[in-house]
C-alpha cells in the first residue's frame, strides 16, 4: 500500500466524517435556515474531498480529470441550490418570526426583477 493510497484514504475518511456531521446537523438543528446552513457548508466540503480522494485513488489522467470536474460541479451547484432554497423559504415566510430586530434582506428582494 503506497503513499498515494494512504492520501486517498485520508481524503475519503474526511469526506465520510463531514457527511456524518451534515447528517447530525440536519437532524439536530431547529429550523430550515440553520439546516440548510449545515447542508451547504459541510456537504460541499464533503463532496469535493470525496472527489479529490477518488481522483487520487484512480490515478489515471483523463479519468481523474473527469472526476475533478464532477467535484467542480458540486462546488458550484450546491451553494446555488442552498441560495435558491433560502430565498424561496424567505419569500414564502417559512419559519420567520413576526418581529425581527435585523432584516436586511428584504430590500434586496425586488432588486433583480424588473
Amino acid at each position: 500500500m503506497g503513499i498515494r493510497l494512504i492520501i486517498a484514504y485520508i481524503f475519503m475518511g474526511g469526506a465520510i466524517f463531514f457527511a456524518i456531521v451534515t447528517t447530525i446537523g440536519l437532524i439536530r438543528f431547529p429550523d430550515v435556515y440553520t439546516r440548510i446552513h449545515a447542508s451547504a457548508v459541510v456537504l460541499t466540503i464533503s463532496a469535493v474531498m470525496l472527489s479529490f480522494g477518488v481522483a487520487i485513488y484512480v490515478w489515471e489522467f483523463y479519468l481523474s480529470i473527469k472526476i475533478m470536474f464532477v467535484g467542480l460541479i458540486f462546488l458550484i451547484t450546491n451553494p446555488l441550490a442552498t441560495h435558491a432554497i433560502a430565498r424561496a423559504s424567505y419569500r414564502r415566510k417559512i419559519a420567520c418570526p413576526e418581529v425581527r430586530s435585523v432584516d436586511d434582506y428584504s430590500k434586496y428582494l425586488g432588486r433583480d426583477r424588473e
Binding site: I73, I76, T77, L80, H83, A84, R87, R111, D112, R113
Partner: peptide, 18 residues
C-alpha cells in the same frame, strides 16, 4: 414566468453549455 433570482440565472448561464 419570471424565473428565479439573479445568482441562479447567471450560474446557469455558465453551466448550461456544459
Amino acid at each position: 414566468s419570471h424565473g428565479l433570482s439573479f445568482i441562479v440565472k447567471r450560474t446557469f448561464g455558465m453551466l448550461t453549455p456544459f
